[in-house]
């Protein structure tokens, strides 16, 4: 399944680039991420609990950052597998300055297999969009100091 979109963040391009690759930021913002541990150059082991109301599942996986082109673009590869199936995401993130902030464009592909794919097909499109939205919401929230 192809995924694409963009999101405007209230940070300059370089800050944004660093934040998106900061494991502690990713750990906080990736929906369901329970832990992210560095296991190698640009590679992190991840434990996550995907939870969507009644639907939930534990996944063990990996996050990898590749094709760095500071501060313009990089590739984020996520994969996880658990009892209810597996998921694999491969996306190119492109950062461009816009209106004093940064527009983060993403384009990539998500592959899902196992039970979630066989019985949850009709929810896949909606839920992947929702997960991405949650990620950016969390990111925006965690990067913007609360207004007084």
């Amino acid at each position: 399944m192809k995924i694409s979109g963009s999101r405007l963040l209230d940070l300059d391009q370089e800050q944004c680039y660093r934040a998106l690759q900061d494991p502690s930021v990713l750990e906080r913002c990736m929906p369901g991420c329970r832990s992210l541990v560095r296991v190698g150059e640009d590679t992190y082991a991840m434990k996550m609990k995907m939870a969507l109301a009644s639907i939930s599942g534990l996944f063990d996986g990996k996050v990898r950052i590749a094709d760095r082109n500071f501060p313009h673009s990089f590739r984020l590869l996520v994969e996880g597998s658990g009892r209810i199936g597996f998921l694999k995401g491969d996306g190119l993130l492109q950062l461009t300055p816009e209106n004093g902030g940064t527009s983060v464009g993403y384009e990539g592909e998500v592959r899902v297999g196992g039970t979630i794919s066989a019985v949850g097909q009709r929810l896949m499109d909606t839920t992947s969009k929702m997960m991405i939205k949650r990620f950016f919401d969390k990111l925006a929230e965690s990067l913007t100091p609360p207004q007084q």
């Binding site: 009644s54 639907i55 939930s56 599942g57 209810i84 039970t115 979630i116 949850g120």
Partner: peptide, 10 residues
């Protein structure tokens, strides 16, 4: 049904 498919495991 979700619990039977183990997509939900409360």
């Amino acid at each position: 049904p979700l619990m039977k498919l183990r997509l939900s495991a409360p």
